[in-house]
Each structure stands twice: as C-alpha cells, then as structure tokens.
Computed example of a mutant assay.
Amino acid sequence: MANVQKLSVALTPEIIAMLKEAVASGEYTSTSEVVRDALRCWKAQRTAHEVDAEELRRLWREGVASETSIEGEAVFHRLREKYASQPKKG
C-alpha cells in the first residue's frame, strides 16, 4: 500500500475482541485488514442507500407526472382486508 496513512481510533473491548477473533480464526491477516474490509462494506452500503434514495425520487417524480392517483384510504382498506384474511404466522 503505497499511500497509507495511520489513524488512531478508540474501540470498545467487545469490538477489539471481535477484531482479534477475526484474525485468530485466519479469516483476516491483520486487524487493519478487518477494519479496511468493514469500511469498504460501509462505503458500499452508503452508496447503495444513495442509489435507493435516488430511485425513490425518480419513482416519485414519475408517479406525480403520471397524474394517476388512488385515494390512500382505499389502498389501506384493501391491504387491511388482504392481510386480515391470511393465516397468522407463529
């Protein structure tokens, strides 16, 4: 890693134990590798969230532009009836 910068962070004993266990199990070669992987996952999750939000905005604009609407109460009534008639899980 040519362009690496060290950073100090404070972690709880529980998180430290998890990092060490990931290394001890052989899943990772170092705690730094665990943290880098976690940060990559965090970044991917944030990116996916941004894409989801943009998709919702697009769908909202599309719905508004269609000028087609259904009264919300009618939709909720149908949903209540649908789910009331289904067997309870458990």
Rank of each mutant, 00 (worst) to 15 (best):
R78S: 14
E27F: 03
R58K: 14
S85R: 10
W60S: 05
R46V: 08
Q86E: 11
M18R: 09
L19K: 01
S30C: 05
V9Y: 09
A53Q: 11
A24H: 14
P13V: 13
T12F: 07
H77K: 09
N3K: 12
K88S: 14
R61E: 12
E67L: 05
M1D: 13
H49R: 11
H49D: 10
A22L: 02
E33F: 06
T12A: 12
V35E: 00
E71K: 00
K88Q: 09
K6R: 15
A53N: 10
L11F: 09
A48Q: 04
G72M: 06
H77G: 02
L19Q: 02
E73C: 00
L59F: 04
E62M: 10
A38N: 05
L39G: 06
L39D: 06
H77S: 11
S69E: 09
M1G: 13
K82H: 05
A38Q: 06
W60A: 02
I16P: 01
S66I: 08
E33M: 07
C41T: 05
V75R: 00
Q86A: 08
A10P: 01
E55S: 05
S8I: 08
L56Y: 02
M1P: 08
S30G: 09
A17T: 14
R80E: 14
A44H: 08
R46L: 11
W60H: 08
S25M: 05
A38H: 09
A74I: 04
Q45T: 07
V75T: 05
A65E: 10
A17D: 15
T68F: 00
A24N: 14
P87E: 05
A22K: 04
L79S: 06
D52V: 10
P87K: 00
M1N: 11
R80L: 13
E33L: 06
C41W: 07
A53Y: 07
T68P: 00
L11A: 06
A74V: 06
L11R: 05
L39S: 07
R40E: 14
K43F: 06
E55F: 01
E14Q: 13
I70E: 03
M1E: 11
I15L: 15
N3R: 14
G72R: 01
A38M: 10
V9G: 04
L19G: 00
V35C: 03
V35S: 01
P87S: 02
G90Y: 02
K82Q: 07
I15N: 03
L56N: 03
